[in-house]
Design a binder for these strands. Structure first.
Length: 477
RNA sequence: CGGGAUGUGGCUCAGUUUGGUAGAGCGCUUGGUUUGGGACCAAGAUGCCGCAGGUUCGAAUCCUGUCAUCCCGACCA
């Protein structure tokens, strides 16, 4: 066991990454399993992370002019089937309601796997004039997709998410919206989750069912696997045509509007775990950490310790999400416990500190301990929280960059795919056959065509024909 | 949905080969001593052995089915 491994309950990453992940989500009390496969309990500590994500992201949606709505959870089969590609994409994994009480339903209802069809039905009722546009809607809800294999946060049968749905008079405006929201997601991930992402477009093969273009942010996890962390779709007027949504434009001509949708899910919690976590457990970025600082009194039985610790806690709780642990557990136990739970800062205060009018602050990301004068504690805490975010981001970015490889030809590609894990950058001619071949031959899928292009070669890594697109490939969750 | 592994107090597991009525460590409760990296002593509580059938005088153990979890594929946020 390595010297810096202080939490024994957690399998180390090198030994078994998948086990490490399940250890972290269960030992840090983020989730609980239930009797229904793929349906998990999100426990208070896990849910608090989601609430912080929601709070920040919802604020960003409001700033960009979006309104929250709520759509029903049931979709009649006939409604789901209106858009051909869409139903083909989702039908294999929807759950059906066939009975109401003891009565068999005339038409079965699916539990929403996503709500495009419901939004479309509603738009058809409320959009009549160019003056009704745009509609910029979002909803926070859960959706159900009957997945075959499930993992907490990464793939569950029911999961929490937000789905934005907008409808616009022009294609240009809808396209701009699609990109705008992708940028909101990227900013959220990088600024608040301290998680670097690659922004790009999905290939046709990886596109959302019914979309004209699918944009994505892709993050790289600790084990070198890619995780799609958010998507934004441009639908053109395909859904509008399928659902008969039309409006009178300024020239009084009937016209089909253009739509978008975009979503992020509780999978982001999985992304945070696998981006920042270490062998001692969770490492949470301060912006979404339910507890940003834990006060731990040392030698509580000694005169004045509890009082002083409580006083410091009360001061700090005004500037950050602070907590104090006055339980009878030993200090060492508490250190390990809150490290496992990823609390960014720990403040130790005991008789020695009180004598010196100081305290000890330990940071979760580096393990570094510093002595801070009590008079300066507020400023230092705020500075440290910011520094932890920056350090987490830089560390994750460095690791991602070190795990990103460039392949100039097929042998090199295969060699990297077999021996390394991470992103592989390579040129691609644009045809489906070459993409399929890489999957078959090297076991990786295309992650995206990044906005930030690099010219590696003139020719496709597979077929050798002319290529002008650089793609990221990788193994994905 | 295919291939593999595993289900035994809250947790980690022993016991299954060779059927005989359930164990350990940790955790939990109470009391005491401790307290700067998962403290110690003492006394206690906790099990339809995943679930459903079957074989048997008798099943955690053998058989069949089923469900869940993990891993590897296929599918997906």
């Amino acid at each position: 066991m390595k010297d810096d491994k202080k939490v024994k309950e957690i399998t180390s990453m090198d030994e078994d990454f998948a086990r490490w992940y399940t250890d972290v989500v269960t030992k840090a009390e983020l989730v609980g399993y239930t009797t229904v496969k793929g349906c998990m309990v999100i426990r208070p500590y896990g849910y608090a992370i989601w609430e912080n994500i929601q709070k920040i992201m919802d604020g960003m949606f409001k700033e960009t002019g979006h309104e929250n709505v709520y759509m029903p959870m049931f979709i009649p089969e006939s409604l789901l089937q209106k858009e051909k590609d869409h139903v083909e994409g989702f039908a294999p994994e929807v759950a059906w309601v066939t009975h109401g009480g003891n009565e068999k339903l005339e038409e079965r209802l699916c539990v929403r796997p996503t709500s495009e069809t419901l939004f479309c039905e509603h738009y058809a009722n409320v959009v009549h004039s160019w003056r009704d546009l745009p509609k910029l809607y979002n909803q926070w809800c859960s959706v159900v997709r009957w997945e075959k294999t499930t993992r907490p946060f990464l793939r569950s049968r029911e999961f929490l998410w937000q789905e934005g749905h907008t409808i616009h008079a022009s294609a240009e405006e809808a396209k701009a919206e699609t990109i705008k929201m992708l940028n909101v997601y990227a900013e959220f991930c990088e600024k608040y989750l301290a998680m670097p992402v690659v922004k790009g477009i999905k290939t046709e093969k990886e596109r959302f069912a019914g979309a004209e273009e699918t944009y994505t942010i892709e993050a790289l996890m600790h084990d070198g696997k890619a995780l799609q962390s958010g998507t934004s779709h441009y639908f053109g007027d395909g859904f509008a045509r399928a659902f008969g949504i039309q409006f009178a434009n300024k020239e009084n001509k009937l016209q089909y509007p253009h739509q978008t949708s975009w979503g992020t899910t509780t999978r982001l919690i999985g992304a945070v775990i696998m981006t920042h976590g270490d062998d001692n457990g969770l490492v949470l970025p301060p912006a979404v950490a339910p507890i940003q600082l834990m006060v731990i009194p040392v030698a509580m039985h000694k005169e004045g310790v509890t009082e002083k610790a409580t006083e410091i806690y009360n001061r700090l709780n005004k500037i950050c999400r602070a907590k104090i642990d006055l339980s009878e557990n030993s200090p060492g136990w508490k250190y390990a416990e809150y490290e496992m739970k990823g609390v960014p800062l720990r403040l130790e205060i005991g008789p020695r500190d009180i004598e010196n009018n100081s305290c000890v602050i330990a940071r979760r990301d580096t393990g570094e301990k510093i002595t801070v004068l009590l008079d300066e504690v507020e400023n230092k805490v705020l500075e440290l929280l910011q520094d932890i975010r920056d350090n987490l981001f830089n560390r994750a970015k460095l690791r991602r960059d070190n795990m990103t490889y460039t392949a100039h030809n097929l042998e090199e590609f295969k060699n990297i795919a077999d021996n390394k894990s991470g992103f592989i950058k390579a040129m691609w001619c644009g045809c489906r056959e070459c993409e399929d071949k890489l999957k078959e031959y090297a076991g990786v899928t295309s992650r995206c065509i990044p906005f930030e292009q690099e010219h590696i070669e003139d020719t496709c890594v597979v077929c050798g024909k002319k290529a002008d697109k650089m793609l990221y490939f990788g193994k994905a969750y």
